[in-house]
Design a protein around this nucleic acid. Structure first.
Lengths: 198, 198
DNA sequence: GTCTATAAGTTGATAGAC
DNA sequence: GTCTATCAACTTATAGAC
């Protein structure tokens, strides 16, 4: 409070991020200029640097916040969720699809722009991704131990299932033949059968 | 024959394509300059335009040839392959993994650089991809009809399985814990179980 | 908080020499 | 078949006015 009148910092900042996100997702990080982002927000090119030290940080910040939220949300879901491996796997699959369909642009750049990160930034994002993958792997191992899943390799299976679930984003369009709930159901069925738990 | 001595056209052309492929895969189409490609081949920037009319055509030609070969090869595999849906599905899965692991850079740009194609070029590539997906969908429908597969939706399942199989490229490294044959086996098992045919 | 001007360098593509 | 020189436009990022 007692904030200076006419200060738009706290509204312009998010607008810059939103514009960058949309443009990066549509055209790719390297193909988008700072002028384009500024233009989208209605700013001159120079004013952008009030909201980010540089273009790389803008990309990294989008990806980092996205991965942090992914991890935080999947943990929340787990705490509130069921306990047996089969139900946990289904909850994970539904969570993954829902979270990813809610943020198509963020998901897109988090997968496509990894190579445009500096090595340090890349390592940070990769670590977050690995931690997410490990959560699924743990569910699969628990199910194996308890004898409710049958699978050859929990690490490979985790990678395979995540790739499958994330793939929804490449073709799903709102208002299409199937709604989100129906899509969730089809994919859950595939996941559970694939691990021998259907 | 009777070709002019000193003409390196037929060897330099492929070298330009190879350099472009590697650089596009590593850094992304938009981030790679024609000068970088030329430098990689040991040419001046101008000489590149003897081998491609422009940068866009270079990208499109790589993607187009890749998709054409994918379709041609999957058709050859089918002709020489088995007839019952279960064996056809397994053959498709093994073919897909093998073909994709053999061409990681081409696979990468064919998925990542779609948004850098002109609308016409994009439509052409998308059509080829759709035709490939349809081949898997047909296998699934045949298996459903014959009662050897149990699945909710052949279109969605085809998309899901292709995403899963293509995902191998994101983590597989030669000389790792599992060799290609072992990876094929794990994924085949997942695919067959997912469609209720294991 | 934002603009304009500017720096210093890069871009895709072409022209003409050899 | 290749090189060098060149074009006009564009790039990220900064400085200083307002």
């Amino acid at each position: 409070m007692a904030r200076k009148q006419g200060s738009h910092s706290d509204i312009t900042g998010p607008r810059v991020r939103d514009a960058a996100l949309r443009l990066f997702a549509r055209h790719g990080y390297a193909a988008v200029s700072m002028r384009q982002i500024a233009g989208e927000v209605g700013l001159g090119a120079g004013a952008l640097y009030l909201y980010t030290p540089d273009k790389q940080t803008l990309l990294f910040s989008l990806m980092h916040d996205h991965m942090q939220e992914l991890l935080a949300e999947v943990k929340r879901d787990r705490v509130a969720g069921p306990d047996d491996p089969r139900a946990r796997l289904e909850a994970f699959a539904r969570f993954h699809i829902r979270f990813h369909l809610d943020r198509p642009d963020l998901v897109f750049i988090a997968y496509m722009e990894l190579r445009n990160l500096t090595p340090e930034n890349f390592a940070t994002i990769e670590d977050l991704r690995r931690r997410y993958e490990t959560r699924l792997e743990r569910i699969l191992r628990d199910g194996q131990t308890e004898g409710v899943f049958r699978l050859d390799d929990s690490k490979l299976t985790a990678m395979a299932l995540i790739a499958m679930l994330t793939g929804v984003n490449t073709w799903f369009r709102e208002g299409g033949r199937l709604d989100r709930r129906a899509v969730e159901n089809v994919y859950c069925d595939l996941v559970l059968k694939a691990v021998g738990a259907a």
